[in-house]
């Protein structure tokens, strides 16, 4: 693989995988929480939460990236605090790329998990509570195992989306080789260079293979959820 890819190309692939993995793993607990909240709970501000979760799906990615820069940049309200208190910088760093990818992928992740949560019969959760399980134990022993295929499907979708994220990423963290140059950014950069077509093409093939593998895997898992919902 390293013979076939130049170091620069390999760097972009490795960075993309790292960024997407970190983005998916760290946003997963929050995604499950948001999905359960939207599917099951009633609370003031639910409509606002729903809107916020879905906003990255409908806003132009460049706008999302710019909003991230305003909020999490060194001068931004959150970015300033993170830098002063914890020494964490997000803007123009790979961690910022992970944040941008996580935000952009979040709606897809939440949608997939929410569908799984809605397919769980609340009567099973009631039954568990009469058997002595607290709300947390009910979630851990009944809800979570039943939505697991949906959670995996949501995570895979989010990972695929993160691999392909471009607009918000390039706006928030720019296109710095080795630091923030992910697969799409690298393809874009190679296409700007004379003679970069071959590199761009190799990365395009890798992107397509990864995306298709993710789609097939998530479709398969979604079908398993449907089957389990049916024979209950």
């Amino acid at each position: 693989m390293s013979d076939w890819l130049s170091p620069e190309e390999w760097q972009a692939v490795a960075l993309s995988l790292r960024v997407s993995l970190v983005a998916t793993v760290l946003s997963l607990p929050l995604g499950i929480l948001a999905a359960v909240a939207l599917a099951r709970w009633t609370f003031p501000g639910k409509a606002v939460l729903n809107l916020l979760v879905h906003l990255p799906l409908i806003l132009p990615p460049v706008v999302t990236g710019y909003l991230l820069l305003l909020t999490f940049g060194r001068m931004g309200p959150v970015g300033g605090l993170l830098h002063d208190w914890f020494g964490i910088t997000l803007a123009f760093r790979w961690t910022g790329a992970a944040l941008a990818a996580a935000v952009m992928a979040f709606p897809l992740m939440v949608r997939a998990i929410r569908l799984a949560v809605e397919a769980v019969d609340p009567k099973l959760e009631e039954a568990a509570s009469t058997l002595g399980a607290s709300r947390f134990m009910v979630f851990l022993t009944v809800t979570l195992p039943l939505i697991l295929p949906g959670v995996i499907a949501g995570a895979i979708l989010a990972f695929a989306k993160a691999m392909g994220e471009f607009g918000a990423t390039i706006t928030f963290v720019a296109n710095i080789p080795g630091e923030t140059q992910t697969l799409p950014s690298a393809i874009y950069a190679f296409l700007q260079e004379p003679g970069g077509d071959a590199s761009a093409f190799r990365l395009v093939v890798i992107s397509i293979v990864l995306a298709m593998a993710a789609l097939v895997l998530s479709e398969w898992l979604a079908r398993r959820v449907a089957v389990r919902g049916g024979d209950r």
Partner: peptide
């Protein structure tokens, strides 16, 4: 709360946990 009442409930629609065997349902 329901889980602290120690009241066994048999529902009209058994409501067994589909992801567990009978034994794990019984020992839940």
């Amino acid at each position: 709360p329901p889980h602290r009442r120690r009241v066994g409930y048999v529902f009209q629609d058994a409501r067994l946990f589909p992801h567990m065997t009978v034994e794990r349902n019984l020992t839940y």
